Simulated scan of single mutants.
Amino acid sequence: MSDSTGPWEPSARVAALLFTDFDGGTAGPDDVIADALDGGYRERSEGLHNVLRDPGEDPVGRFLACVALTRWADPAGYEEVVRSAGAPAAVAWRGASCDRLHGQDDSFGVLADAVGDSADMVEERGTAAERLRAADASLSVADRVQFDRHISSLMRQDVVASCLATMRTAVDRGIARLGGERVPHDLGLQLALMTAAAHSVDDGWSRNTAHRLVEAKPGERALRELSDVMPDLRET
């Protein structure tokens, strides 16, 4: 998980839930979240539900709670992802995580990783449908917020097959943005990763869209991703 901007200290309850391992030692949230997958999530989930629901809690703490619950395939985590995607500019925790290269907000990218990786927990939790709804909501804003390569976490076969209509709409809007405004992040890469992933589900749409994306000059990173899947694009 990327470091948040500026100095930050967790509240006491967030520290206990996400900065303390299951032996009582100090740990980082990534390690705690991973260790909890074996069942430890059960003893931390209720406390994180309370953090997530508390508007008085620090936004970074609420964001970390959402990441943990989402990674554990918890319905509350997925619900928060859907809610946040509904109004991404208004989310209190925007900026809670920033990419190291440009210092830009990548909080939705971190959540995309959590949604995608939670595939290994949905059978145990009975939340496969909730995961797909969270993935669909995330993809619906892929033309508006930064995901960068995190978008690949959502490009699993089940998600692509279920969310293809949403992906098409987001990619179409994104191509229009590339042609009409300066976008501060690498939108072209995100669109290319989505377009390339759709290749195995809808080859015709993927190829047609890839050509339209190339015409919009999406950048070198995007072109490499497209040509890896559709080598003939190099000849156009």
Results as ranks from 00 to 15, higher is better:
Glu215Trp: 08
Asn208Ala: 15
Ala92Thr: 14
His185Asp: 04
Glu235Asn: 14
Leu154Val: 01
Gly95Thr: 13
Leu139Ser: 07
Leu193Ala: 00
Thr127Met: 05
Gly174Ala: 02
Ala196Phe: 06
Ala142Gln: 01
Ser162Met: 12
Met121Cys: 12
Ser97Trp: 02
Glu124Cys: 13
Val91Leu: 03
Ala197Met: 08
Leu101Asn: 14
Leu213Val: 07
His150Trp: 13
Glu215Ile: 13
Arg125Asn: 11
Arg177Thr: 04
His150Pro: 03
Ser227Asp: 14
Gly204Cys: 10
Val122Trp: 10
Gly109His: 05
Leu191Pro: 03
Val110Met: 11
Ala134Phe: 10
Ile175Gln: 13
Ala165Leu: 04
Ser200Gln: 14
Val159Phe: 08
Gln190Arg: 01
Leu223Met: 15
Ser227Leu: 08
Leu132Val: 09
Cys98Asp: 07
Ala222Ser: 03
Ser140Thr: 01
Ala161Arg: 15
Val160Asn: 05
Ala196Ser: 10
Ser97Gln: 13
Leu101Cys: 11
Leu193Gly: 02
His199Ile: 01
Ser162Tyr: 13
Gly180Phe: 03
Val201Cys: 09
Leu213His: 09
Cys163Lys: 06
Ser153Ile: 00
Ala176Trp: 04
Asp158Thr: 09
Thr195Val: 04
Asp232Cys: 14
Arg100Gly: 07
Glu225Leu: 00
Gly179Met: 09
Val122Pro: 05
Ala176Ile: 10
Thr169Gln: 12
Trp93Arg: 02
Asp186Tyr: 07
Ala142His: 01
Asp158Phe: 11
Arg156Tyr: 11
Leu101Lys: 14
Ala198Cys: 15
Arg100Asn: 13
Thr127Arg: 03
Asp203Tyr: 09
Arg156Gly: 10
Phe147Ser: 06
Leu213Lys: 09
Val122Asp: 11
Ser140Val: 00
Ala142Val: 05
Ser162Glu: 15
Glu181Ala: 04
Leu233Ile: 02
Gly109Cys: 09
Ile151Thr: 02
Asp148Leu: 11
Ser97Cys: 14
Leu187Lys: 11
Ile175Ser: 12
Gly95Arg: 12
Asp106Ile: 15
Ala198Asp: 04
Ala137Phe: 05
Val183Lys: 05
Phe147Trp: 03
Ala92Met: 04
Leu193Thr: 06
Leu139Ala: 08
Asp228Trp: 10
Arg149Pro: 02
